[in-house]
Structures are given as C-alpha cells and as structure tokens.
C-alpha cells in the first residue's frame, strides 16, 4: 500500500463508514474492510481502476468528483477521504466544501508546491518545476490546481473548517525534523484531517 495510505489507515476508526474520492484500485478501502471492518464506497472515473475495484470486491461508483457530491446526504459518512486528487480537480474549493458537508471528518493528502525543491527550481530556472515526483510539463498535466500547505490551510479557514491534524512528510512519507519544524518548506506531501464548522465538537477516536 502507498505510504500515505498507511498513515490514513491509522487515522480511520474501526467500523467507520468511509467515502473515498478518487479511490484508484481500491487499495485503501480493501485494506480498511479487511482490517478495520470499514464499509463504504469509492468514487473513481478511470475504467481500469474501476474494474480493479470490482474484481477485489470494493464498492466503486463511477462518478466525477468535480460534478459534486449532491447525491450524498449531509453527514452521511464518518470519514471522507481524498488522496492526491485535490490538485487535479476543476473546483477544489467546491469539492472541499462538499466533503465537509458529507463527512463528519475529512482526510486529504496533496503535494506541497511550497516545498523547497519547487521553490529552488522556480527561483534558479525561472520555470515551472518538473521533477521525478511531479513529472508533468505545465501545459500537459492533470495537476491544474497546485497549492502550498499555507494555501490549503487558508482555504480551510475561509470555509470555516477546523484542522484537527496535519502531517508533512517527504515522498517516502517519513516525517523528518525539518518537515516538523518548517512543514511548508520541507514537507513534500500534506496529510490533513479536517472537520466542518458545524461539527467542531465532533471527535473521531484515533
């Protein structure tokens, strides 16, 4: 399992109902179902990944997250998860608001565009960063809405969301001293647990 998924796995209480936005091959849901009696659904639009989910018995719904979560009732899931998809969304702000509405807790992971390597690339070359980790050219990339940890946190505040937990890790998903002290500079991937304004008192046992 991908390292960020392992961390998320720890954060999700046993027996929760989980909605996984952009669930890929269903790794997270399959593992959560097996080890934590978690039930729920994954949303995905890639046909091969959908088939992979079906083959392993993960409930998968072909649905484009950018078209909203209007078909889900408010607070209908304990946890709404979205890993490494925020930057690829057409309307990340609207999707975030929808996640906060549908889930009692939301877990989001995304790459940090404020990482020193991105800054260094931009400063020294004057061009949009391209790396092994973010290998796309600016004109041909699924990642159309990059942000930094600081940007993300601002959006959370603007939407009245409470940041319950935030973790900055490197691409191997280790958290070093540097990423703890200067997350927006040293962290490559952010893993956030947030909850909506109306549910400030709500605690998820972790």
């Amino acid at each position: 399992m991908r390292a960020d998924l392992e961390i998320i796995h720890e954060w999700i209480p046993s027996g929760s109902r989980v909605l996984d936005l952009g669930c890929g091959d269903g790794d997270l849901l399959a593992s959560l179902a097996e080890h934590k009696q978690v039930s729920g659904y994954g949303l995905e639009i890639d046909p091969d990944k959908i088939t992979a989910c079906i083959a392993r018995g993960v409930n998968v719904i072909e649905q484009n997250i950018d078209q909203g979560l209007g078909n889900f009732a408010s607070n209908s899931f304990d946890v709404v998860v979205m890993t490494q998809s925020l930057q690829a969304l057409q309307y990340p702000d609207k999707v975030l608001a929808e996640m906060l509405r549908v889930g009692k807790t939301c877990i989001i992971t995304f790459p940090n565009f404020g990482h020193w390597r991105c800054r260094w690339y931009l400063t020294t070359k004057g061009r949009m960063p391209v790396s092994d980790f973010l290998p796309y050219t600016w004109y041909n990339t699924p990642n159309i809405h990059f942000c930094t940890f600081a940007d993300f946190e601002r959006l959370c505040h603007a939407q009245g969301a409470r940041i319950e937990e935030g973790l900055a890790v490197d691409r191997e998903h280790r958290h070093s001293l540097g990423s703890r002290l200067w997350p927006n500079l040293m962290g490559e991937i952010g893993i956030y647990r947030i909850s909506g304004a109306g549910l400030a008192e709500h605690r998820v046992a972790v």
């Binding site: 959908i50 079906i54 409930n59 009732a73 209908s76």
Partner: peptide
Amino acid sequence: SREIVDALMAAKKNVSYLE
C-alpha cells in the same frame, strides 16, 4: 441508474456502478 445507485448507497447496501 444513478437513482437506483443513490438509493442503494443511502440504504447502505454494497453496490458498484459503471457508466
């Protein structure tokens, strides 16, 4: 079909949906 799927999810049934 999505009406069926949404109802099944609201009823907490195991369901997969392909479009």
